[in-house]
């Protein structure tokens, strides 16, 4: 059970962060939308600070705790490009990602976000199933 303490505490931090953004700025902490808005606007300023905070936060955690930096993904670069394109296109069409739909949307009891979350988790599970158990790739 101790293996799940850090994931749980990390999850609590994520929830706290989302609530802090909602209570202070009245905004949904959906990273895909915030990142895109930080580039295209409107209201670029707070978005840039939030995105910068994500990077600073991860850096702080590893620096202060000494927790090892995880190994980068093993996939070849072309597959990383394909994955990035899918994530970018999909999150725009579907209006959100794991944070916006999965944490904030479900938090607001949005049926739309619950359906979106179940959809992308299912698609992720099927994709990994095909990668590992149909194609036999150890990615």
């Amino acid at each position: 059970m101790t293996a799940y303490i850090l994931p749980t505490i990390g999850g609590l931090f994520i929830g706290l962060a989302a609530m802090s953004l909602l209570a202070s700025l009245g905004r949904v902490a959906g990273v895909s939308g915030i990142v895109w808005g930080a580039i295209t606007g409107p209201d670029r300023q707070w978005r840039v600070y939030f995105v910068g905070g994500l990077i600073v936060g991860a850096w702080l955690l590893h620096t202060l705790s000494g927790m090892a930096i995880p190994a980068p993904p093993e996939a070849p670069l072309w597959l990383i490009v394909v994955a990035g394109l899918f994530v970018g296109i999909g999150t725009r069409i579907g209006s959100g990602c794991t944070s916006g739909h999965g944490v904030c949307g479900i938090g607001r009891r949005s049926a739309r976000s619950l359906i979106a979350t179940l959809t992308f988790i299912s698609a992720g599970i099927i994709t990994v199933f095909i990668l590992r158990h149909v194609l036999g790739l150890g990615l």
Binding site: G10, A18, L21, Y49, F50, G52, G53, G57, L60, L61
Partner: peptide, 15 residues
Amino acid sequence: ALVSGILFGIGLALS
């Protein structure tokens, strides 16, 4: 926004 982002980033890395 910065503080919220930092908390979020800590959570993502820690989890």
